[in-house]
Design a protein around this nucleic acid. Sequence first.
DNA 1: GCCGTTTTCGGCCCGACTGTTTTCAGTCG
Length: 577
Amino acid sequence: MENSEVAAVFEEIADILEIQDENAFRIRSYRNGARAIRDLPERVADLVAAGKVLMDLPGIGKSLSEKIHEILETGTCRTLEDLKKKVPAHLTDLLDVKGLGAKRAKVLHDKLGIADLEGLKQAAEEGKLRDLPGFGGKTEQNILKGLKTIEAEAGRISIQDASEQVAAIGRHLAGVKSITRWETAGSFRRRRETIGDLDILVEASDREKAIEGILEYGPVADVLARGEEKVFVRLASGLEVDFRFFDAAAFGAAQMYFTGSKAHNIAVRKHAQRRKWKLNEYGLFRGKRRIAGKTEEEVYGKFKLPWIPPELREDRGEVEAAEKGNLPTLVEHKDIKGDLHVHTDATDGHATIEEMVQGAKERGYRYLAITDHSQAVTVAHGLDERRLKEHAERIREVAAREKKFLLLAGIEVDILKGGRLDLPEKALAGLDWVVASVHSYFDLPEAKMTERLLAAIASGVVHGLGHPFGRHIGSRDPIQFDVDRVFDACREHGVLLEINAHPVRLDLPDIYCKRAKEMGLAMVISTDAHRVSELDLMEYGIGVARRGWLEEGDVLNTLSASALRKRLRSRDEKGSA
DNA sequence: GCCGTTTTCGGCCCGACTGTTTTCAGTCG
């Protein structure tokens, strides 16, 4: 049982309680509990197995602790099952629609008998919502828009959730004796933002025994297909996992075939056709003779191509680049020397400055920028001018005690509706590192949004543009702006584009990383960590950067501390000139 | 439901915005 699954039980309880208009604080406790579990650096199941007291965890009290034990044992809990009897099975799905909350979901159910997204869509399309109390034409349109966003991402899970699932499956497979090797393929291996299902390639000494071993995996809920070559299952979480068996002689060809993308495979297969060869999941064949298949390198090599990293296999020019010997040397996790966007408990973070510094050091980093929110983000208790000054002084005190670690005093300042920054420029000018971000008015028309961003970029005090598109994958659309004009302005003013590594953001998206690189811009990969464990989200940002063809030299935070300091100094001199 | 405690009860973040409404409920962050 994974943390995300325990958390999902609490989330569902919270959703149902919300529809029932229960005590808001009780609901929040369930949501806090869900997040506490989701954010744990280790599995709650392991903590329990090790005899740890869950009530020591923040947000987990007597009740939630007991429920976690119950969930780990039974997969659910009494409270949820009882609540489920009181509401239609899919009513809580309505809460996933942006702009639709519990109150109006209840109205939809009570007045129109709507019990799921399908019913909601139908009613909205028929114009039945606009006349309900508390609804109107705009609301109806917004709901239709929200439904579209959900459809686009239906059934997909985040790369982070997928990673967790893969790790869990891997722990199980390690205990299946007849399995001698396994590897992931598909969109997971390509590090896509979201994953529809998992493809796992297996080499086994005895396939029948291997299948038996796989089916002993606890979360397997349904066996969708079972044959000689594969076993296809659905886990309790709804995730579908395809296990396919291959011999060592075909394993590399199988990895290529199942890693895809389909478009990349077609592009590679053209090379085979040209030579009258045949490439399939079992190997590269000349007539009936297999001339390659053991490894991917071997197969690519037969075409006189270097091995192409999975992240590039989207048919976005990688095969041509490989032919010309122009493949990028992609940035790697070990290249990253620091994190330039993190929060502390001064605003909505959950750790102190010192704790974040310690976390950064433990990850081998040489520097860190503390970038708490500005005053406009009232919910995060954002910093006003006076508190910013005090906070920066605190950061500098900690920085002064650090010998071989560079601690930067920064801020994530809001870009207000009209493009002004949320704090006076003189207050920002004294900081080491200023990230400017949009947190409001996401729906401005493109022209206004472009002007808004351009104004912030031209302010002369901004070093980086935080999560440039402001999207939340699967729930909030990216903001609209003239990308070329904004990127041009960034280059002109030396403003770096952030690749926000949070799995729900992954923003810049990969294709814009590539675009920005082609336009000669540098980027910075940041976690936006609100707690120490979130510093580990860096790997998802690196996945995006790699999918965006970025090399070490394209990413600012691969610089050494002294090189970074130098770069910032020259930038600031230029900025104020 | 959690937490801290002036310890078994009271507080828990709350201001801004949208789209309703005709003074404010619902939603968001």
